[in-house]
Amino acid sequence: MKGQVSARQEVLKGLWDQNPTLRQLLGMCPTLAITTSAINGVAMGLAVIFVLICSNLMISLVRRLVPNQVRIAAYIVIIATFVTVVDLTMKARFPELSSSLGAFIPLIVVNCIILGRAEAFASKNGPWRSVLDAVGMGAGFTVSLTFLASLREILGNGTLFGVTLFPAWEPWVVMILPAGGFLTLGLILGGVNLINRSHEASRRRALVEASRAAAGFALPGAAAGTPARGEA
């Protein structure tokens, strides 16, 4: 796989195909807990992007120096260091944001997206690709969280980024409560699956047609592999 994947794809995979929140369903805890207002989603996402880039870079740099048996311990210490840096910086510079995100900034340490990328990617790839991977995964997380949080803030509070959208709106408080988080996330996941399914279907159709054009009807579906099965 290495070397065949372009730099662009390395970033883009995190946004859709392997989106950590919507496709891999990693890091659900902050996803549900802090997405009560759009600004929280953005702040959480930016904090995770920072930690992800730094830890992926650092881990891919030391990956040959750290013996296999203690790699998880070493990774966690590296991740925790960057998380603490973020936590202290936010407390010092953005105290209000930091108090609304509460314990969830320190808890980035145990966010499985970070350790997941360290194990699955940064420990096997070079620094440049690891950074690209972190940018993509972090962006995917941020976009998903901001989208989810915007929906919840609009419906549950009538505002977006603190700006009142519908003055006459009686907010659905449940959308801000945990139940609203689960409902919104479930609907978004369903929507993403629907889109993927219809993409998949149209991709199969295109493959079948390409194979017909290429091979005529002599070898139905052969060029397309299994997706074209049943077309004969």
Binding site: L65, V66, P67, V70, A73, A74, V77, I78
Partner: peptide
């Protein structure tokens, strides 16, 4: 192993 963790 010990040295690595101490260094980190």
């Amino acid at each position: 192993l010990i040295a690595t963790l101490v260094a980190v």
